[in-house]
Simulated assay, not measured.
Amino acid sequence: MEVPMIARRSSWTGGAIQDRLRRLNLITTVPPLAFVGVLLLVFTARTWWHVVIQVVGLIAALATAERWTAGDFLRVARPSLVVTAVVWLAGALTDDPSSFYGLSLVGSFLIPPLPRRRIPALAGLAVLVAVLGATNVLVHDDRVGARLIQFAAIPAAAVLISTGFMFASQRFFDLIAELEQSREREAELAVIRERVRFAGDLHDIQGHTLHVVKLKVALAEKLLDSDVDRARAELEEVRSLVGDTIVQTKELAYAQRRLNLSAELENAKNLFEAAGIHVRVDRESEVDARVGELLGQVLRETTTNILRHAQARQVRITLSRCGIAIVNDGAADDGPPELSGLSALRHRLVENGGELEVSATDGRFLTAASFPAMKTREDGR
């Protein structure tokens, strides 16, 4: 037996969250850093040697940034720190004040994630930048004060500022990760609520029946010696009651129990929103009561399929008098999956004069149910 509306997203949700966060980090971090590095290269490099050392430092810094977005940067950041320190030393000795850029980036990525002693580490990085930059005065003895400001004080201050911004960025991305995890927990809670709702429906169907069966069987046992015909009648009622319960249980298992479309719509909205999916509902008119139950079954089954098979971010539900259309993004590129639940519903709709359309185009999945015969009769009035 399969519980309807249970979203089995746990197998891919965590990976999907990490992928989205990494893409966000890549877009907001690496291109701006590369752009600034190229600008410094274009406007400050005066010799081919300056070009070489700035490119080496920039590559090391961008490699650290890329690994930072993947959450695996420590093993890259430490060698990159050594490389960019050597680059800055070479730049200071060759009169290239922009070559500290790579070292400042690597340090700003390395320090904020430290579990403790981040302030001393930041101070040590600033001192390292200043000391390496101060080596410029060893080979250039003119304008010592100006050179110390240009190669020691300004780069050290820039490192402090860039790392301070990185502390803020680290907190921002931590908040995004917490938000995504919160959405995942909400989706799991929605699954639990759906299981509880299903358990309640199952209890309503079987709990009362089993209690009645127990009483009737006990009564039949007492009547076996005194009134066989009455005992036989009681057992016949038991058999009929059990048969009805089996039918109701099957209907519940396959979402064919009588449904309230408004309740199903509210339930679907809650499930989608809990899973972090934006929902839009358009009501072109009030749904005809004669088809509301079948349309509710289509909505329930489609909601289950979206949560199971799609990585949707948006869902649009359109209700008309004789139909419903559900469109979601995030559909698989290899075509629509095999959806046995919708296949069974298609037969029920056809038996009642309806039709079901299922299609996937450009990553968008459409599920639409309608009753054209009913619409034609209304238009002809």
Rank of each mutant, 00 (worst) to 15 (best):
Gly91His: 06
Lys250Val: 06
Asn25Arg: 13
Asp95Thr: 11
Arg8Ser: 00
Val127Lys: 00
Phe371His: 08
Asp204Lys: 03
Ile246Lys: 09
Glu180Asn: 11
Phe100Lys: 00
Ser359Pro: 09
Ala360Glu: 14
Leu179Phe: 12
Phe109Asp: 00
Ser99Asn: 14
Val131Glu: 09
Val287Thr: 14
Glu186Asp: 15
Thr367Leu: 02
Val191Asp: 12
Leu210Pro: 02
Asn25Met: 15
Ser98Asn: 08
Leu58Lys: 01
Ala158Gln: 15
Ser169Thr: 10
Gly354Ile: 04
Ala34Gln: 02
Lys214Pro: 00
Arg321Thr: 10
Asp95Val: 12
Ala168Asn: 06
Ile277Pro: 00
Ser262Ile: 13
Asp204His: 06
Val238Glu: 14
Asn25Trp: 05
Arg118Asp: 05
Phe272Asp: 02
Val238Cys: 12
Arg75Gln: 06
Ala121Pro: 12
Lys216Ser: 10
Val137Cys: 05
Gly71Thr: 08
Val327Glu: 10
Ala7Trp: 15
Arg8Glu: 05
Glu234Pro: 01
Ala130Gln: 09
Thr245Glu: 07
Val144Asp: 02
Arg20Val: 12
Ser240Leu: 12
Ala187Ser: 13
Arg364Ala: 09
Thr302Ala: 14
Asn328Cys: 05
Leu215Asn: 09
Gln256Val: 02
Val350Phe: 04
Val212His: 11
Arg321Phe: 04
Val87Arg: 02
Ala126Trp: 01
Thr64Asn: 03
Leu105Met: 14
Phe371Cys: 06
His140Asn: 13
Leu235Gln: 11
Ala190Thr: 12
Ala126Arg: 01
Arg313Cys: 07
Ser226Val: 09
Ile176Asp: 05
Arg232Gln: 15
Leu125Met: 10
Ala134Gly: 12
Ala65Pro: 00
Leu299Lys: 07
Glu293His: 10
Pro32Val: 04
Val131Pro: 03
Ala275Cys: 15
Ala187Gln: 14
Val358Lys: 03
Ala90Val: 11
Val131Ser: 07
Leu224Trp: 09
Thr304Arg: 06
Arg308Glu: 14
Glu66Gly: 00
Leu148Ser: 04
Val196Ile: 15
Arg258Ser: 07
Ala177Ile: 02
Phe43Ala: 02
Ala85Asn: 08
Ala360Tyr: 03
Glu338Thr: 04
Trp68Val: 01
Ile192Cys: 07
Glu273Tyr: 02
Thr64Pro: 05
Thr64Lys: 00
Gln206Met: 07
Ala61Leu: 03
Ile246Ser: 10
Pro337Val: 02
Leu342Ala: 00
Val56Ser: 06
Arg257Lys: 06
Gly14Tyr: 08
Gly335Arg: 05
Arg195Thr: 06
Gln206Arg: 04
Asn267Thr: 15
Val139Cys: 04
Ala126Gly: 11
Ala199Phe: 13
Lys214Ser: 09
Gly380Glu: 13
Leu307Met: 15
Pro113Asp: 06
Leu81Trp: 13
His203Ser: 07
Asp72Arg: 08
His211Cys: 08
Glu66Asn: 04
Gly124Ile: 09
Ala233Ile: 07
Leu345Ile: 07
